[in-house]
Every structure is written in C-alpha cells, then in structure tokens.
Amino acid sequence: MKLRALLGNLGLAFGVLIIVSPAILFFIWMASLSVKMEIDNASYPPVLIPTQFAWSNYAAVFNSNRFTTYFFNSLIVTGSATLLALLIGVPAGYGIARMQAHKSTIVVLIARITPGLSYLIPLFLLFQWVGLLGTLWPQIIIHLVVTVPIAIWIMIGYFETTPMELEEAAMIDGATRWQVFRHVALPIAKPGIAVAFILAIIFSWNNFVFGIVLASRGTRTLPVAVYNMISFDQLSWGPLAAAALIVTLPVLLLTVFAQRQIVAGLTDGAVKGG
C-alpha cells in the first residue's frame, strides 16, 4: 500500500514535470539566448550558460535611440485603450446586466470572433481620409476593438453575480441610478474591474496585427518594433532575444503576480483579443 502511494506520487511528479517543462524550458532558453555572445549563440552543440555573460545585448537594445520611443508608444496606446475601455465598458456591463439584455452580448461575441484584419481594411481607409495616419490615434482607437469587448464581457458576468439587495435598498432611500452605480455597485465590482483591466492591458500590449498596418516609423509599438528587427538583423540573435524578452517581460510578470484574476477572467469568458 505504501509502495503504491509512493508510485502514485512519483507518477504525479513525472506528469507535472512533463506538462510544465515545455513552458519553463522555452523561457529559460529565451533568457539564455539573450545573455550570450554571438559566438556562443552560433556554437554547436548549443551552450546553455555561457562562460561570459553578454549584458551588452540589453545595453544595445536600451541604447538604440528608438527603443524609448517605441516603449512610450506601447505605453500610450495600451494605457489609453485600456482606460477608455473601462470608462465605456464598466457602465455598459452594468447597464446590460441590470436590463438583462442578454441578446446584446451577441455584439461582443461578434467582436470576439471577427478576425482583427477585417476591421483594419475599413478603418485604415477611414483614418487615411481623416488624416490621422502618422499619429498614435488610429492605434488607440483600433485597440478599443480588443479592449472594449473584454471589459463589457467581464463586467456583465461580474455584475450579474453581485447581489441586488443593497442597490434596491439604496434606491428606496432615494438615491438616483447614477448614485447607486457610483457608490454601491462600483465599489463591490472592484475585483471584476481588476480582471478586466489586467486582461485588456495584456491583450492590447501583445497586439501585433493592428500595428503592422497602421504604424509608421515613429509610431510603432514594441511588438511591431521587435518584428522589424527580425527582418533587418537576422543574424545577431543575442540583442534580438534580449529585445523579445524586454517586450514580453511586463506581461510575464503580470501573469505570475495576477494569476488569480487572469485565470478567473479567462475561464469566465475565454476572451482573447485579435
């Protein structure tokens, strides 16, 4: 009996190892590529931990004069698109949940299943006519395609589970709908807002397809900038891997620290942008 329990535990440990290792090994290898000299990255058999660390790869990325521009572009696009989405999506989620307008969620579903490229053709022409190309506005606006449905979807789900009693009591006491929302519903919904906020940030930060069409040289976001590095210096793997790691590191940290919210949000609506 004891042997069986031991074997069971060993089997479980083996199973855990098997399913987790592809993720762990990949990111370890990514980190390894980013701290190696060109010689080490081109050696066969491959080297995991180099004798000499090439921190200069990171310095090269930060010192390239455009990196800070791209970083702030990403920050502005993701930040604005997320804040606007919450401003619009949280009240909308509340309204839809309270009106029980379940049919309206079909729009959110349509947004969820439409390929990102389909929005790009008409909106690209529109931005061209209005003369917005060359600024960050087209990207901020089109990122709403990703962030607003996430916010609405998650907030509907959240407000549907919050109890109505408090709101009804406040209404009987003479509060207006806006006051009820602002002072009763909103404070209770904070965890839901956190989920919407985190997921909107991640999917907007990661977005690539909108940027390759709408961004010009000065308005690239980080994913687009990294992609353009691939085509230009195919051979210097170290700085490339360092850039890739820098771009995705904020998201990875967020994933580890806000895991509970992310898991709750993804299992609830299974949202994903793009």
Partner: peptide, 24 residues
C-alpha cells in the same frame, strides 16, 4: 499555484516575441 502560473505563461506572452525565439 506557482506551477500553474508558469504553465499559463505561453498563452499570455507577447506572440511576436515568442515567435522570434521559436524561429531561432
């Protein structure tokens, strides 16, 4: 919990950054 966090990292990581490393 920690291992689950590591396990879901591939789906949250920036696809382009991930694609770049896969290409290598």
């Amino acid at each position: 919990g920690f291992l689950r966090g590591l396990f879901i990292m591939p789906m949250m990581a920036t696809p382009v950054a991930v694609a770049l490393v896969w290409t290598m």
